[in-house]
Write a protein that binds this DNA or RNA. Structure first.
Length: 230
DNA sequence: GCGACAG
DNA sequence: ATCTTGTCGC
């Protein structure tokens, strides 16, 4: 377990945070396909909080993309860096996520985030932001449609429908299990939307949520609990 | 002005 | 995110 460091000049206000998004947005790469599903490494990152104690715990779990076996994992604990504000989630999660990613002992490959990338009020969600800061290919897989519109995808696993901001497709609702509520996939950095959906399907052989986020979620919660019993 | 709103 | 027990179903 390592310690979270809040970067110098980290935004302190919502206005500053939005200005950072507006500047970094230009660095997102959308025209690379990204790694082929089922090859190399796939890494899940997630964060758990205790706002009462001002404590944050993050986890990064690296899986072998073809077997989904855990290859490496790391956690980071520290102070909360930003309050939760819809549209500014990245400022709350990224310092902890970066610390956990830095502590992992092997190349992360594709990084799967809990939340959104392109599907964001300013088109620069958590997955986009993390991708720009690390240079890694990233995607976002969210559990809710946020403020976006969508029709229900057909019932079979693998069915999709457009996630829309007006008439712009910012992501896809993707059914990962027959007849179960879909997940919401969007592109982060250096990955294409169809490829992001293919990765998500490859990571959901059994459960609605990707193995990466399930593993990372369990690990960061555990790290947060250990913070109490010490 | 009010409500909604990733995690 | 987090607070929280059992329960219905594959």
């Amino acid at each position: 377990m390592t310690t979270v460091r809040i970067p110098e000049g980290w935004p302190a206000t919502e206005e500053q945070a939005r200005a950072v998004q507006d500047e970094l947005r230009a660095r997102v790469i959308l025209d690379e396909p990204g790694p082929p599903p089922g090859t190399g490494h796939v890494t899940g990152v997630d964060v758990a909080y205790d706002d009462e104690r001002d404590v944050v715990a993050a986890a990064a779990v690296v899986l072998d993309a073809s077997s989904l076996a855990v290859v490496a994992e790391a956690t980071a604990v520290g102070r909360v860096s930003f309050p939760y504000v819809p549209g500014l989630l990245a400022f709350r999660e990224i310092p902890a996520v970066l610390a956990a990613l830095d502590a992992v002992a092997c190349p992360p490959g594709l990084v799967v985030c809990d939340g959104y990338g392109l599907a964001h009020p300013r088109r620069f969600g958590l997955a986009s932001h993390l991708g720009v800061l690390t240079g890694l290919p990233t995607i976002g897989v969210a559990k809710n449609p946020f403020t976006f519109e969508h029709d229900a995808p057909a019932a079979p696993r693998g069915s999709t429908s457009a996630l829309l901001a007006g008439s712009e497709e910012v992501g896809r609702a993707l059914r990962t299990r027959d007849g179960v509520k879909p997940v919401f996939v969007s592109v982060g950095h250096r990955v294409t939307l169809p490829n992001a959906c293919a990765h998500t399907l490859a990571l959901t052989p059994r459960y609605r949520l990707p193995e990466t986020t399930r593993r990372a979620d369990a690990l960061c919660r555990q790290a947060l609990r250990q913070t109490y019993s010490v």
